[in-house]
Simulated assay, not measured.
Amino acid sequence: MPIRIWHQSVNELTRIAAYKQGIEDHAARFLGDEAQVHVHGLAEGTYGALSPSDALGNAHLYHRVLGPIVEQAVEAERQGYDAFVMGSFSEPYLREMRTAVDIPVVSLTEAALLTGCALGTRIGLISNAPNVAYMTRLSVAKHHLEARVSAVTSLVPGMDEYALIAARDEPAALIEAFTRTARELIADGAEVIVPAEGVMAEILAARGLTRIDHAVVLDVFAAAWVQALGLVRLRRGLSITVSRAWAYGRGGN
């Protein structure tokens, strides 16, 4: 049977249906019969009049809106999914999810950073907006990978998720802005460029942007799915699962 992956977005996907469809189409092309990726989002109205990028910069809203995502991982395991991908660079409650379930929990941020470390010595991350860049810097620090990251920056001017999805069919200006920012990071030593926001990353992946000059532009979705597949194989073939000592323990250490 193909591996089943629950891919969790923090977007209201009913408002940006093209993003959900884009991820599913990308997964079908990249993974073929090897795995099925089912994309889930948050309920319409979750953010009110705000975009996710604006809302999640507020720590209280972040906790209130994204805390329940831990239970989404529990539900994925209950429904028999083989892996759970946290498809957001805000990377909410990663430790809590890994504590709650035995199936692999993969973070878009962590997978991008670890893959980037194998592709180059210095990684530059480009977010869509300053709020997201700030959250991504916190994630880099949480994974203790600051020494491998040359910079975490954002597009100028910034674009929220709804502006990005509006540019999806004619993304030339977005790609130009991303490329301009990437070249600044490359000139400062970055060898791997990570699009550090989901909607933007999906647009760039759909357009096949994998290189700027001599630097790699990472397909962050593919990196996360490949990591998920590898962890599922370790679990199925060798019974290797998440450690229960200390950080991901369930008590009794």
Rank of each mutant, 00 (worst) to 15 (best):
A223K: 01
A228F: 10
L204Q: 08
L204P: 14
W225C: 15
R211Q: 13
A228K: 09
D219A: 07
E202L: 13
A205Q: 02
A223S: 13
W225K: 04
A228I: 13
A215D: 08
V217Q: 11
A228G: 06
A223L: 07
A215L: 05
M200D: 01
L209F: 06
A215R: 05
T210Q: 10
R211I: 05
D219L: 09
Q227K: 09
M200G: 01
A215T: 07
A206P: 01
A222T: 11
V199Y: 04
G208Y: 09
L204Y: 12
L218D: 03
V217C: 04
D219E: 06
I212R: 07
L204D: 10
V216R: 14
A206D: 13
A224K: 04
L204I: 05
G208R: 04
V216C: 03
W225L: 14
V199S: 14
G208S: 09
V220Q: 13
E197C: 14
W225H: 14
L209G: 01
Q227T: 10
R207A: 05
G208A: 06
M200V: 11
L218K: 14
A215S: 06
A228E: 07
H214V: 15
H214N: 13
A228D: 05
I212Y: 10
G198H: 00
Q227F: 00
H214G: 12
L229E: 10
V220S: 08
F221G: 15
A201Y: 06
V217T: 04
Q227S: 12
A215W: 01
V220E: 03
A222I: 01
G198L: 13
A205P: 02
D219S: 12
V226K: 09
H214D: 15
D213V: 07
I212V: 09
L229A: 09
E202M: 14
A222M: 02
L218E: 07
F221D: 10
A206Q: 13
I212N: 04
H214K: 12
G198Q: 12
E197N: 15
A201K: 06
E202R: 00
L204A: 12
A223V: 07
V216A: 10
R211D: 06
A201D: 03
L229I: 14
L209E: 04
V199C: 11
R211S: 08
A228S: 14
L204H: 10
F221T: 11
R211G: 01
A223W: 02
L218Q: 09
F221C: 15
A222C: 03
I212W: 10
A222E: 09
E197Q: 15
D219F: 00
F221R: 00
Q227G: 02
R207P: 03
V217N: 06
H214L: 13
A206Y: 07
V216I: 12
I212S: 08
A228Q: 07
T210L: 08
D213W: 11
L218G: 11
